[in-house]
Simulated assay, not measured.
Amino acid sequence: MSSYLSSTIKQFEYYKSLGDKTFKQLTFDELQWQSHEDANSISIIVKHIVGNMLSRWTNFLTEDGEKEWRHRDEEFNATFNTYEDLITTWETGWKCLFDAITPLTKDDLERIIYIRNQGHTVTEAINRQLAHYSYHIGQIVFLGKLLKGSDWESLSIPKGNSTAYNDDKFSKAKGKRHFTDDL
């Protein structure tokens, strides 16, 4: 189970890096873009993810993950004034998450915590949030690709490069490593 914790942390770091790399390719105006009035911009998705992170991971072993101070509906209103505000908020959410899960031990994984009074093991809560964040970060990346078009810099294996990528991987000896180790 200790490999579960280290792997999970690496997965969260990977998804954070996808967001980071997307933001670096976009202007503040692009981060605010909405396809229509009811659609979420990247900045709104960021605000929602961070609101969720702060609620779920603050004192998560001792308090319900849906905090009374969270106002989820307000997360879907565009309020960032600058690119720097968005990035600072993004970093605050991730810091809260990493500060909560980094000190965990395998003994913590079966502890019961609550989200909206629904009991979860810590493992289940981690998996729930990993899936939730990767879902929304996929939306961020998709919107980034849509906005940049042919100027988009691929965050994974670019089209047409699969053979070269695989050749490189298979040229190395077999060994246990995380897929993010050489990104």
Rank of each mutant, 00 (worst) to 15 (best):
E110S: 13
E110V: 08
E110G: 09
R111G: 00
R111A: 07
I112F: 04
I113K: 02
Y114A: 09
Y114G: 01
I115S: 06
I115G: 00
R116H: 04
R116G: 07
N117Y: 06
N117R: 14
Q118P: 00
Q118C: 02
Q118M: 06
G119H: 02
H120D: 00
T121F: 12
V122S: 03
V122L: 08
T123Y: 09
T123M: 11
E124D: 14
E124M: 14
E124K: 15
E124I: 12
A125V: 05
N127C: 11
N127D: 15
L130Q: 13
A131D: 12
A131H: 13
A131L: 15
H132P: 12
Y135N: 13
Y135S: 06
Y135R: 07
H136I: 10
I137T: 11
G138E: 05
Q139F: 08
Q139I: 05
I140C: 06
I140W: 05
V141I: 09
V141M: 07
F142H: 09
F142D: 00
F142N: 03
L143N: 02
G144W: 07
G144V: 06
G144S: 01
G144M: 05
G144C: 07
G144H: 04
G144Y: 01
K145F: 00
L146W: 04
G149T: 08
D151V: 04
W152L: 02
W152Q: 05
W152H: 03
E153V: 15
E153G: 03
E153S: 11
S154P: 03
S154T: 13
S154G: 04
